[in-house]
Design a protein around this nucleic acid. Structure first.
Lengths: 123, 123
DNA sequence: TAGTAATAGTTACCTACGCTAACTATTTCT
DNA sequence: AGAAATAGTTAGCGTAGGTAACTATTACTA
């Protein structure tokens, strides 16, 4: 899709997105945000490090690995952001602002329902 | 998610779904419907054959492989259908019929916009 | 009608990305 | 101080996407 233009994959993008919007995050934070197990995050973050898009920033708690975007990582994020914004504009053609807000509101309600269902810490 | 309760994976389900709603289909038809390459379809259909959920029905054109659900395949489809219907009811709790129709209409418009964008036979 | 095009599928191979189980290192709690 | 909890890693499994190169069959065309 749009991401492949930038040689980025979905899971990789979702982490760049999170870091761009939250500044920095530990692997566990990312894991919770994405709803994915820790080893999955470890692997993708490692890949992003190899690509030079994210870097480790040491903190007090030496167990955790707090990550942030690098300069190139921010650059890539901005580039993809533009591509995606353009894509969104295209696919929303002919849909009024009002309709968009309606749809977003409803989707948020559904999202809340889903989150409540999956609230069990385990399973 | 809901599919894992039935030991089914997303791509597998999408093919069962298509066959349940269209009766039978060739691999190329499935490939077009799902928007994935032929080898991907070959693999997943092979897996579904191993599981005994789909079977080959010979036709005139001996190049193509027309598939349909088996008895057990239909049974599984129905079972999953029930699980998913229940799930949908749950996550739509508190959203009026009117709102649902609105959202569906808007999503269909977006879908059409996306399909038009990707209309190029190649690329 | 013989020969070429196109079409349907397959095989082999690469990568991404979920998962679980079992582990180390560090911090927190008792 | 010692046990329990937390953060992350490693190894290994399976599904699922992709491309390149191939076979078999059908359709087109000169």
């Amino acid at each position: 899709m749009e991401l492949s233009k930038h040689n980025l994959y979905r899971a990789q993008w979702s982490i760049l997105y999170y870091l761009a919007n939250y500044g920095s995050a530990t692997l566990v934070e990312i894991s919770n945000y994405l709803g994915v197990e820790k080893p999955t995050v470890t692997r993708t973050v490692t890949r992003l490090e190899e690509l030079g898009y994210v870097e480790h920033v040491p903190g007090k708690d030496r167990r955790e690995k707090r990550m942030q975007l690098t300069e190139p990582g921010s650059k890539i994020y901005q580039d993809v952001r533009v591509t995606i914004d353009q894509f969104e504009q295209d696919i929303l053609k002919g849909i009024s602002e009002e309709e968009q807000l309606q749809a977003i509101r409803i989707m948020k309600e559904i999202r809340n329902n889903i989150l409540q269902k999956g609230d069990n810490k385990n399973d």
